[in-house]
Structure formats: structure tokens, C-alpha cells
Simulated assay, not measured.
Amino acid sequence: MTVLAAAIALVGSLFFALGAALQQFEAAGSAKPGLLALLRRPRWLIGGASIVAGGGLHIVALGLGPLTVVQPMGVASLLFALPLAAALHGRRPTREELGAAAVVAAGLVGLVLMVPESEGPTRLGPDGVLVLLGVAGIAAVLLWAGARVASPAWRAALLATSSGVLYGATATLMRVLVDGGWNWWYLLALPVPTLLALMMLQRAYAVGHFGVSFASLQVADPLTAVAFGALLLGEPLPTGAAPVAAALLTAAGTVALARTSPLEARNDLA
């Protein structure tokens, strides 16, 4: 069952990577990548369906195997996405890009696997939900503001990080919903960070530096969920020098991607 879980998670990562590459290809170079305009693009919609399929396969894999096996397979989507995105743009990924992505993936796997498992049900009151949405919103706005004055590569990174923070808040709220400790209006709050995250991510993709934007998303999403878990749900954090080393490795890989990820834009935009 463990081998089957790993295989399903790996296929899920491929679907997720393909979806991200397709959506970035449609958004790249757009001055204003609005969701309404992107919703009229068939490839963007196919990308969204592929991402949903990848997420579903990841959930199935988690039901069949341990997190320590499934999670590294999920991080592999970064290594799949770079060649797929490069192929869509008619080029080959460089060894520097792939090397930097491998460093990010290694650091992120280390960080995720060092997070202690939570025990007991997840509960969050209305005040906690407001704090969750408020902190995520403020962080996202600050990152968005920083992106407005940054160079293109760092603009993509900051916008994607903003999206990752909002997706991390969404994941935390989803956990609370699944565990049953919620009020009916939690369902009304859920679409807010989700839609804002999607909008921020398309703006990051529109910049054109796919490698750094996708890596930043991959890093920010789970780390934000872990941070909110510790801040609001009382979950434990990893301790010692190993998490620090993994974090530094992830940061170094992201910086390297910002320097090596090429500027990509379509020349057939409507």
C-alpha cells in the first residue's frame, strides 16, 4: 500500500505541475491577468482541472500511505513543472534552473517532514478565524505592495508568496471545517482567501518568471499552514538546528531560481 500511495502521489504531482504550467502559459505576459479573461481560455481551464485532479490524487495517497512517503512525492511537482513550462514556451530548462529547483525541493521536504504530527481534534473559534483571515490579509497586502517596487523576478516571487500565504490560511480553515469545530459562516469566509490567492497567483504568473513564482508558492503555502497551526491551534513546531538548515537551503534555492529563471511571455496573446 505504501508503494501504491507513493505512485498515486507522484502522478498527482505530475497533474499539479501540468496544471500550473498551463495556467502560467495563459497568464504570462498579460498586463492585467483578470480571472474573467482567463476563464475564457480553454487551456487555463484545463490547467485548473488538472490541479484539482492532482489535489484529489494527493488526498487519496494520504489515505493509503504515511505522510513521510506521500509528502516528498508532492514536492516533486516543482521538478515536473519546470520542464513542462519550458516546453510550452518552446525552450529547454537549464541545468541551473533544475539544480536550484532541486535545492528548493530538498529543503522543503526536510522542513515538512520535521513538523511534528498534531494530536487531537482541530478547533478554532470565531475570534480565531478573524485573526487567521486578518493576519493572512495583512501579510498578503504587504507582500503585494513590495512586489510593486521589486524587479520582475522578485515581483513574481513576492506575488506568489502572497498567494501562498492566502492558500495556507485557506488550508488551515479547511482543516477546522473538516474536524467539525466550525460555525456556518466559516463556509462563507472560505472563498475569500481562496479567490484572492488565485488572483495573486495569476499576477505572479503574468510576470513571466515561472520557476521562482511556482517555487515561492510551494514554499509559502505549507509553511504558512504550519505557522497558523502553531499560532492558533497550539500545534508543535520542529526544534533544533535541522529545521533552520532546511529553511536556509530552501531560501538559497529560491534566490538561485530568482537569478536563473528566465522571463517568459507569450507572443500570441489576444
Rank of each mutant, 00 (worst) to 15 (best):
E97A: 03
L232P: 03
W185D: 01
L36H: 12
W44F: 15
P42Y: 00
S213W: 05
V131T: 15
L217R: 07
R175F: 01
S261T: 12
V219G: 08
W182T: 04
A241H: 11
L14E: 07
L143T: 12
T68D: 10
E264T: 15
P193F: 04
F228W: 02
V165H: 07
E235F: 04
T250R: 00
G229Y: 00
T250H: 05
G47V: 03
G146N: 11
M174Y: 00
R43W: 11
V226A: 13
V149N: 09
A76M: 12
L82S: 02
G211D: 01
P236F: 01
R155T: 14
A100L: 12
R148H: 14
Y205L: 05
F80G: 12
A245I: 14
A87I: 01
E119V: 02
L233R: 10
S13L: 07
E235L: 07
P152H: 14
A9K: 11
A28R: 12
I8T: 13
L249P: 00
M174R: 03
L159G: 04
L38H: 13
L98A: 09
Q24I: 02
A241E: 14
G211K: 05
P66I: 03
G99P: 11
A225D: 02
R123D: 06
L159Y: 14
T250M: 05
L195V: 15
G74S: 12
V69W: 05
S118L: 05
S261H: 03
G99D: 05
G19D: 14
L64E: 10
G99V: 06
A28D: 13
L4H: 03
A145W: 10
L166T: 01
L35A: 06
A197H: 08
G128Y: 08
M200V: 00
Q23C: 02
L113W: 02
D268L: 11
G63V: 00
G164Q: 04
